[in-house]
Design a protein around this nucleic acid. Sequence first.
RNA 1: GCGGGAGUAGCUCAGCUGAUAGAGCAUCAGCCUUCCAAGCUGAGGGCCGCGGGUUUGAAUCCCGUCUCCCGCUCCA
Length: 517
Amino acid sequence: MAQEDLFKKIIAHSKEYGFVFQSSEIYDGLSAVYDYGQYGTELKNNIKKYWWDSMVKLHENIVGIDSAIFMHPTVWKASGHVGAFSDPLIDNKDSKKRYRADVLIEDYMAKIEAKIQKEVDKAAKKFGDSFDEEQFKSTNIRVLANREKLSEIKKRFVTALEKDDLAEVKKQIEDLGIACPISGSKNWTDVRQFDLMFETQLGSVSEDASNIYLRPETAQGIFVNYLNVQKTGRMKIPFGIAQIGKAFRNEIVARQFIFRMREFEQMEMQFFVRPGEEMKWFEAWKETRMKWHKALGFDEKKFRFHDHDKLAHYANAATDIEFEFPFGFKELEGIHSRTDYDLSQHQEYSGKKIQYFDPELNKNYVPYVVETSVGLDRTFLMILSNSYTEEKIEQENGKVDERVVLKIPASLAPVKLAVLPLVRKDGLPEKAKEILNTVKYDFNCIYEEKDSIGKRYRRQDAIGTPFCITIDHETIESNTVTIRDRDTMQQERIAVEKIHEILTNKTSFKDVFSKIN
RNA sequence: GCGGGAGUAGCUCAGCUGAUAGAGCAUCAGCCUUCCAAGCUGAGGGCCGCGGGUUUGAAUCCCGUCUCCCGCUCCA
């Protein structure tokens, strides 16, 4: 099957079986916002549990918090999000390429600088050892003219940006005669500002209110609580703080289903380490996190690392764990060595000392941070992509049958067990409900008596239920049921009192965790 | 935002040389009772994405608009 078709089918299946709906669908939907349905929510909760337990339960030195989405506005100044998170963009109408307006102007300025340098080089060659570069630059007519030009361009551009005058920015690009490097044309659209942070007001009177933001990442909630957690939890470095929560980004183009949404959920852990040891921990967490993904039992070839060449301003090492989605290898998780950038920034902006006293070294320092940050929605899509299977089944009578089955790992499956009476009479429904009552408190179950047994099995396959038990006439006589495995379709007759134990063994995270530890 | 494609029942789609809105599957009720979908009877369900225009008459033609998919672009 073509990958594009596969992706379409996954999206359609998600909707048809109650996993993911478009937000506000009856009002034509809201772009790049999605709701999780009845089974999607169960799956999502199970993914969260898998992640949370793997962090907090399996590591004595990791604790979890849940910080608010609203934060003091200065947090985003300290983190560098205010300012850096909004770009003036412009499109060339002929080449259809989009550029950052500031980059276009900077490139133009770089060309002028290159011209100046050329003059300097020429003169240096001419005058030899006696050449005084500073003197030349401040006296040569051509250089002076160009330097004057540079400062004018810069002044005009900075003024325009400060005033938020985007029309002026466009006019400057036109006045400078900047052409698109691809098409060579000067046919530009208007400059538009894209603010990646959502803004709102705190307080009822908007004039007096301070502008606050919906957090564009959850990490800052951990950093600002570093001291609280370290002190109240008596945490000793190295230690980690984990969090699952929503973040919001006003993406210019948000697409590919739940891969890139404006409102999304992150599962992240900030690990605080001694300065100088961050690379060791960075490597360790790379391995641990990759194991976490692979422990689910999917094709290992679909996962890979992608190391960053260009690093963000706060990082000294960064890698992505990528997964081969139907639309290609894309980032699933980021692992970053964030140095002491964030804590130092908060120390500076808040004026509070954010340090750790290390008794072994007998000194204070700002800890370094290694971050693991995985997209919950992307993990959800990864699991769906891996699980969605179309099978052809050769029947005994030679007929070829098809089924769609979600091979979701049993520990993550939204529904663990379907309880099905073979027929709707002879006391089988009553017996089935009796059995249901013994397991429904510990496992998410479905009871169904409508339609033929085969049809009911298929319905469970479509939502990924790993086990079905069928109550037949023999159940009444011997207190046994058949249990059907979703993936093999094999059935086995077992005693009713064994059901709970079997489900416990097969649906717990124990097996998966044993592959990580 | 630009280009291409698409929006008709819960799903997949037909109808698109203007004239009463269709099929299969699904859903619901009943029958049948059968361990791997598609047995029988009946029922519900649609302002043909939304708004405007042309026309005696628009799902169909025209304009606008919204949403989705693909590509470009962006991505902490």
